[in-house]
Design a protein around this nucleic acid. Structure first.
Lengths: 208, 208
DNA sequence: AGCGGTCTTGACCATTTGATCAAGAATTAA
DNA sequence: TTAATTCTTGATCAAATGGTCAAGACCGCT
């Protein structure tokens, strides 16, 4: 039954625009300086508005942080979905690695935001980790286990396979500075990195 | 020519003890909350002394942070040294992985302290990264390249091999919460993790 | 014991920062 | 146009926090 007017007050045009601007600015600043390292003033400046105005949209600093975390969660999880149990295992996993690597290249700030959360004990997204994320990992592990059972890939611990893939791909976003310090500022290392990672995984999984 | 008395005033017994206590407390707190997220009071409390007393030993918060970073650098680098060019490549690399994994297990706080530094652009250890650390990586890459040239291991990009090893091993310290959320709080996952990592690397490097 | 230097801390200061408020400007719907 | 609503911000507040200081406690040496 459709309501003539939406129950939720419905966002004003200005509200929609400004909340977007704020969340963009917040991701920028939070990912660079962490929660405590970020001041509301910084976000406001980056968003091009006064601090009281920003706090008109999000009452507390904590609210901004939660909102940007939540908004980014979807993006961050996207590459982890969609392992097709019917697909060719090595191809599926390569696609998975490529997708996660693209994420590290194109949206490193989201990656760093989450890395920071984890590093400090996931005070906000703890429930998410032990809830939906654990479920997703369990499902993915199940798919991998089925492949192993059918002899399509070599036997390997599915959980640690997933963790190592996350580790390698995230690393190129989270430790960007370190990698640039070694390879040089202008280096586009992503293609080589991806090749190396996929190669390690494929060699490790190829059934003998 | 030996000096009858050391030029540096020489630390008092109490100084030596307290500086140690402070650095220990600082590692604890900085690694958990990051630089900005840590207050001098927190460190003082953990160290069991008053804030002014702590500041008697380290004049500024920044000094404490630098000191603990510097002290931990040695520990953190230790596993990265000592790849023996004359040794059997796969065995050498396995040893390397094991050492780094032990570091993640036994001293995860040091790992997290550095991860936090990197994540936020390495404002303090930036010079170290592009100096001694780059040199160390270059040397290690050279050793690996020699092994490849002699046909002892398969051809692979030495730099990305090193990065992926770092990524996988560090991950188990830095993302500890995430792993526990998935595998369960009491899980001792390090043995399986190490097996999986070494297996991936070895399969990827075995010459065909 | 007694003395000089070292160590310790309660009280305090200045700045930063998250948050509030009142008053006015802009927008919207009639 | 007009009135209600939404949006915007300068001024301000209270708490937190890095850092100082002076006064006294403690230690090591003779």
């Amino acid at each position: 039954m459709a309501q003539s007017k939406p129950k939720t007050p419905g966002k004003t045009r200005i509200q929609a625009i400004n909340e977007d601007i704020i969340l963009g600015a917040a991701l920028e600043v939070f990912s660079a300086y962490g929660y405590r390292g970020t001041t509301v003033d910084q976000i406001a400046e980056r968003a091009g508005m006064s601090k009281p105005n920003l706090l008109y949209y999000f009452r507390r600093k904590d609210d901004i942080y939660r909102a940007v975390l939540e908004k980014t969660l979807a993006d961050w999880l996207a590459p982890l979905r969609g392992l097709d149990p019917e697909g060719e295992p090595l191809a599926e996993i390569s696609r998975y690695v490529s997708a996660k690597m693209a994420m590290s290249r194109d949206n490193p700030k989201a990656s760093r935001l989450f890395a920071n959360e984890m590093l400090h004990g996931a005070p906000i997204i703890g429930d998410f980790l032990s809830g939906p994320m654990k479920a997703l990992v369990d499902d993915t592990a199940q798919i991998i286990r089925a492949w192993i059972a059918k002899g399509q890939i070599a036997a390997i611990d599915p959980y640690h396979l997933i963790f190592t893939i996350w580790a390698m791909t995230q690393h190129y976003a989270d430790f960007d500075i370190q990698i640039r310090a070694v390879l040089g500022e202008s280096s586009d290392h992503f293609p080589n990195a991806e090749t190396t990672i996929i190669r390690l995984i494929q060699d490790g999984l190829r059934p003998r």
